[in-house]
Each structure stands twice: as structure tokens, then as C-alpha cells.
Amino acid sequence: MQTIATIRIANSALYLNGQQMFAHEAENAEVFFKALYQYLKLEYPKFFKMDSLSKLGFLAVDALVQHTAEIKSYADDEIAVVFGNYASSLDTDQKYWNGVAAAEPVASPALFVYTLPNIVQGEIAIRHKWYGENMFLVLDRNNKTAVNNSAALLLETGKAKACVAGWVDYLNGAYEAEVALVRKPEE
């Protein structure tokens, strides 16, 4: 499996292939995500409705698309999106549940729709018009390699020509994204 480019978002900074591209010390993740949105010159109002996990994955993949010309050479169903994380959607799950458990219970539809980890893949598919394969794995933090193994499987079986694969995890303000564009080595 050949890695074309890697985007990492962690510690209030964005890295491309290990090199820091942008940093912005912010009091919390949401403020940093907004700064990153502006740095990437995005105009996508729906971004602000997303939960934090979706914002994180969305930004990582947008940065990846901006920095890899190759990604645009694939047909709309040739790119798979394979993500893994530890916390699933637990961050938003908590927020939704706090409303339901309140003295006067409120069930928020806008929160509930984000109580699934793979929603971020839906947001990315809509943004880039990618109709390809999706897979979301929830793993122990020491088992991140399982994501790449599963991405490799999709390339090996020919279900995808390229794969946006990586780790996208958000819980209680702590975040880490590392996604790569990978493909089969040239033959």
C-alpha cells in the first residue's frame, strides 16, 4: 500500500506529511476548528451544524483534498473512506443524553443524528460527492493498524482504487485526526 499524503490534526496544529502547515493556540477545540476552517478558506455553512467529530474528520479530508491533486483523478465511486477511532460518537452521545436525562427531558434531533460515528463519512461523501465504500471501525487505542489493514483489503479486492484512511477521534475536547490518501503501489 502506497501513501500519497498524510494530514494530521492534533495539538492545535495541522500537519501535511509531518510538516506543520498551520497552528493556532485556542482555548478549545471548537475555536481551533473554526480557525482551521478559515485557514482552509472553506465556504460551507453546514460545517457549523456538525458535531465535533464530524468537523474534525471533515477538516482533515478537506485539507487532504486541497493538497493532493491526484485525488481528483478518481471516479466518484473509486475512493473509499475507512476510519477508525476509540470513542465512537460518545462525545455527542453524552450531550444528547444529558438532554434526555434532564429534569425536563429534551430529545434533540439535531444532536441525535450525530450519535453515530459514521456520520462524519456521510458529511465527507456529501461534500466531495464520493459514492464509494465506507467503513467505520471502533478500536482500542493500541489497535490503530486495523484501520490500515481494512483499507488495504478494499484496495486488494479491487473495491476501491484509492482510500482515504485513518484515525479520527474526539472525546471531551481532546482530538486527534490522522488521515492519508493511500493506493495500491504502481505495478
Binding site: 451544524k49 429534551v106 434533540s108 434531533p109 439535531a110
Partner: peptide, 18 residues
């Protein structure tokens, strides 16, 4: 515009009630 959808409409209905 702001990109709201049918789910958000449900949310705004709850907001108006509250």
C-alpha cells in the same frame, strides 16, 4: 443559505415550544 434541513426544522420546532 445556512444549510439547515428537515432535522433542523424539527429542532427549531422544539426550540419554539420551549
Amino acid at each position: 443559505g445556512l444549510g439547515l434541513d428537515s432535522i433542523d426544522a424539527l429542532e427549531l420546532i422544539v426550540m419554539l415550544e420551549q
